[in-house]
Amino acid sequence: MDSLITLISILTPLFIGFFIRVPKHILRLVDKGLNALVYIILGLIGISLAQVDNIGREIGFIAGAGALLFACVIGMNLLILMLFDRKRPWQNDLQGSGRKARVSISGSLKQIACVLAGFVLGRALKESWLPPESANTYALMLLVLLVGIQLGSSGITLRKVLINRRGVETFVLITVSGLIGGALFALLMPGVKLSQGLALASGFGWYSLSGIVMTGAYGPVWGSVALVNDLAREFFALMFIPLLMRRYPSAAVGVGGATSLDFTLPVIQSSGGLAVVPLAISFGFVINVSAPFLMVFFSSF
């Protein structure tokens, strides 16, 4: 029942938001609010992590487990999608903007800083001064509502998403290969059952969502492992999208996961030109909608 309530609390605001249309000047405010909310949620994750007993001993475990999960998931993603790009080359002529793609990791560093700031506050403040646990849930519901509004007001229709065959194929391959990576992680990591490995692998780069959902399902330590995995995907995407784009466009878009619709989209466009943008939007939309469902579904077992 708890899993069903979690799923409803995530998907309902997402779909409500998708049918809310706002003018461009309001959409800019939504974008700013969404960015601010991401930082707030990351701070809340840090506060939750600070409440873990013997956290000093857990940091090494979080880093090691997060690195292993990332290696399994991103490794399988690249293997499957690079094979796909070689077997079925994309016919569009990918022409970049002529400029070298600008790669900025400043946003990712700010996100890590927010988690650390939340952790420091969580250790320093009295328990009575800390936000209630329900704050995470309400912040997450507001986040997915704003994401839905962002998607719906950006001119994205379900027809545009589903008509882009390459984008849907990329989504299917990223999802299947990511879940295989999660299963491999469960096989290699002692004490992790298959359903937990699949749940941890289902964030696909949506770190603010996976951190809270996995914290609710498995506790702050595993929520932090999911956060490390998905933040590492963002770092990796920023660095390697320009290198992958020429020969492996589907892989280049796919490694960005949920961020291919926003944070890594400028890198995707500057590396592959306008021709690759519909693919990225189609893939990014479907992965954003499916990730919450997959995380809650697998964590319910």
Rank of each mutant, 00 (worst) to 15 (best):
S300D: 02
S3T: 12
L244D: 07
I149K: 03
K126C: 08
Q91C: 12
I20Y: 05
L265K: 11
V225M: 08
C72D: 07
L173F: 13
G273W: 06
A186H: 12
G118K: 10
A63F: 13
V115A: 13
S9M: 14
S134H: 12
I59K: 05
S290P: 02
S134F: 10
S208V: 09
R99Y: 15
L42Q: 07
F119C: 01
S153W: 09
Y248K: 09
T215P: 06
F119S: 00
A65Q: 13
F70M: 00
L265I: 11
I212R: 06
L49Y: 07
D230T: 03
V213L: 12
P242K: 03
Y138E: 01
L4K: 13
M295C: 06
F18A: 09
N35S: 15
F301D: 04
T215M: 11
W222Y: 14
L227V: 02
L145T: 05
G148K: 01
V30L: 08
E133W: 11
G191S: 06
P13E: 06
L279W: 04
A258C: 10
A201G: 06
D53Q: 14
L187D: 05
K87H: 11
A291P: 05
R102E: 13
A65M: 13
A280H: 04
N77F: 15
N164P: 09
